[in-house]
Write a protein that binds this DNA or RNA. Structure first.
Lengths: 210, 210
DNA sequence: ATAACTACCGACCGTCCGGTCGGTAAAATA
DNA sequence: TATTTTACCGACCGGACGGTCGGTAGTTAT
């Protein structure tokens, strides 16, 4: 769990996690600015003053939630991915695991990373740094693939961003109980990212891999 | 130009377009809720009361900007694309033109479509309808390709959304004067979308096209 | 049994924001 | 030249919002 700047002695982690989850869902739906502290408190069956027993401010709550999301991303995607030595398999795992983290609804916390402008400069810097670390890891995987001659001739920076675009966009259209379930949606994205939309046209003159 | 609900006789279109562009840039950077009417007015060298000479309310301004963005999308992407009969060429054109519309900065208006929650239900319905029309057109192109056996085995709905994700995400990372210019960025996205990241592995058993 | 702490609440405050209104100077129109 | 219209502005209002403060009922520790 990520730490929390605590001026009062920390309440039970369980309640705090519930507050994060609830707040994240509301903020995700309405946006940070459009969400009042009262909205969050009411959703928790509390008054605003009651909620302030747990949090130190609206901004800090947002910051804590973002850290929570980035921590999840690291735990469930980046850290396990680092164990995979083959870059192609690793890339596949990253896309799949990240996509499922997004579709898993509550874990949709991740996209709160959008609301980064609402933070103080210091908070902003820290979040940006974490995101940057993940991005670099993703791009490094692409670089390895390229060095191994297994990748199409594309700019790895643009590719990494495009990947994140596809995955993060999931949160806008994926819906629980829709035509695709979580795993199917993730699978589709993996397929598109790795192989594109069109069938390969030229069958000759493809060099250099098994 | 899209229409504007006008209670006062419409001022010069030129000034109005400038207001849209300026407002769009600020809202794009800070978000709709975090942008005050004063922010927009000051950026235009006006007072809030002065700006209210041109607009009928903050929500309606947002709505007008969105319509403007969707109108641009239709004019520069969908309408010309409909002239292209070959679906593969059409898809390529759509991705390229849409991506360039996003990178063109000012035209970044399009992503304001994000702020859809701030609208009234009636406005929301109209914007959603327009977006839906564009989405259906895109997916229809993919369906044609699939029927012609030219597409990988992917769900066309998921593919269309993924495409939009890649393109819309451009606005978050593309920067004027960066390593890639507008056309290069668009090219990269076209390549990734059409051919994926990995080189085709199996050279045989690919059936059915030229 | 008492002291201390936790988990809240009702009432309140200052600020900022969307929006209005009555005006005014300049330009267009007659 | 008289009149209307355009393009603004200063001052103001009501409401919502983030945040604070002084409590208090229930639980835990001593």
């Amino acid at each position: 769990m990520p730490t929390r700047a605590q001026k009062k002695s920390a309440p039970t982690n369980e309640r705090l996690a519930e507050i994060y989850r609830t707040a994240a869902q509301i903020i995700l739906r309405k946006g940070y600015d459009a969400t009042s502290v009262n909205d969050i408190a009411n959703a928790l069956g509390m008054t605003k003053a009651g909620l302030y027993h747990y949090i130190n401010g609206k901004k800090e709550l947002l910051f804590d939630i973002m850290n929570f999301g980035l921590w999840e991303l690291d735990e469930e995607v980046a850290t396990p991915a680092r164990e995979i030595s083959d870059p192609a398999a690793r890339l596949r795992f990253i896309i799949d695991a990240h996509a499922r983290l997004v579709t898993r609804g509550q874990g949709a916390i991740t996209i709160l990373v959008d609301e980064v402008t609402a933070l103080t400069p210091a908070q902003h810097r820290k979040i940006t740094q974490s995101k940057r670390k993940y991005f670099d890891f993703l791009r490094e995987t692409l670089n390895e693939l390229k060095a191994a001659g297994k990748m199409q001739d594309v700019n790895t920076t643009a590719a990494a961003f495009s990947l994140l675009g596809m995955i993060n966009w999931l949160s806008r259209w994926f819906q629980q109980g829709g035509a695709l379930d979580e795993q199917q949606a993730a699978d589709e994205i993996v397929k598109i990212a790795l192989h594109g939309l069109l069938k390969p046209v030229k069958l000759k003159a493809v060099d250099g891999n098994q």
